[in-house]
Design a protein around this nucleic acid. Sequence first.
DNA 1: CCCCCCCC
Length: 605
Amino acid sequence: MSHKLSEGSLEVIMNGGVYDKPIMQVLGSKKIQGSGANERFRLLVSDGKHSHSFAMLATQLNDKLISGELSDYSVVQIDRFVTSLLKNTGKGEKRVMIILDITIVCPGSEVGKKIGNPQTWTEESSGASAAPAQAAAAPAPSLRPAPKPMSLAPTVSANLDSSILSSQMTHPIASLSPYQNKWVIKARVMSKSDIRTWNNARGEGKLFSMDLCDDSGEIRATAFKSECDRFYDMIQVDKVYYISRCQLKTANKQFTSMKNDYEMTFTANTVVAECMEDSSSVPSIKFDFVPINEIAAKNVDTLLDIVGVCKSAADLQELTARSTGKLLKKRELTLVDNSGGAVVLTMWGKEAENFNDNSNPVIAVKGARLSEFNGSKSLSCLASSMIRLNPDLPEAHKLRGWYDNGGADMEIVNISARAGGYTGGSNEWITFADAEARQLGSGDKGDYFSLLGVLTFTFADNAVYKACPQEQCNKKLVDQENGLYRCEKCNREYPNYKYRLLLSANVSDASGDQRITAFNEAAEAMLGTNVAEIGRLFEYDKTAYTQLFEEVKFKSFVFKFRTKMETYNDEARLKTTVMNVQPIDYKDANKRLIASIKTISGVEV
DNA sequence: CCCCCCCC
């Protein structure tokens, strides 16, 4: 079997010309830099006429070489490449070819030999004979030789003449690497972070970061300290800038969803100038969408891009972060797509507050974090996530059409659902029968659910006890019968104590009932009296005490429970604890009732 | 040189 190589393509390319998808043969490879994520390989390629050893493999293609796919003698089609001039110590400049995309036409094991008799390409061989080749290579080369070193002061100011930068040919973002520092990119700002400060063992400072893209790829850039001051106001989302002289380093994939092995840092020498000409050729935000039914197979904590129709949006919830004490606002959306999957996406802060769109918009998110709770996966927006409502993207238009033409009624599998079923966020009310059907409590961590129920019985007898007076310790004290009380937990005796409540009760709803336990705050809320007063009644007015527990019977509340299967004496039973109890907000309760009538009957109410 | 991103 013979293979036709693109004879003469190398000299066109090495002269800076354009050659679309040349077919070449790999004659050798060599590791030139680093190891692990920093590995970089050089290829010896041949077009049958010339061979050239300065083809570099973009690092995202390293696997092809390591796996043996790109073995010697392989015939390949170079689908995408850029060339770049490297300063060659003492000898002027040398052009290298960086391969960005490659297709293996025939594996080396099948070809088995060198095709033709290629001569080594040298800069010298690019003399007169090469000139016609370049001239023939229309349209104009995408990368002209020799952007001369910029003699710009390393400052950014309004009077920086962007034409100096723009007059030079720019480099594709995908070709940037730490091994090549003479470049200018023309890139659009997809997003920009707020200024953040840090203060740790290594020092303190401030920074902001931005995500840049062009039609070849994308990259994260960070400006620290004085660069943060210098560039923060200038950099604006959606604008296009010429940027040069940044430091490149290996990106930590844990913290970015950018499709780039590198990220860049602004330095004292960095030059940025806004592009004042037409920049419509520079694309905006780039997504790499994962179909919803594939999300469950991804690892927790990975960042991914998603697009889906917002099938439902829960109410805004306010909560206090346990670690920081900060007041948080969140909203859970359920997104669906034509893969048959559904997933819960949590938005935070302003984005959660401002979202109240009931028109089932298409939502695209870049860099949402996959998290897991109670055995089910869901997505959470981060400060760095980019959210777009009804974006003008083919995928979004496709989903709009799908949803509006039957997709809305399609059977879906909610990947955020737990083994026993998803409660749709802690906001949804279910029934005891639902909780049983969903086998809530059967997992390792316990499950949470809310319902409207009635207190059918309260066990008054041991509802109040004398507890350790220490703030954090609520251990029941042992009466030493000598005026002192012993705490086994603190291992000491106290002359004083505080009262605490531990109320056992039955709660019923229309579908069933459940023995529950309410600790101090929840029990106080139900009884409508504080624990000190209840303790006083217990001590001095047993009739009033008993009366209190009688009066609360048959009162209704909105309960939030935590339930978990526990084993006592070889017998498994549900331990259900009241996490929160609220009086009924009838406006809200009626809204839920109407919604549920609508669902059950299929009739608009 | 950051890398926190929350809750049930």
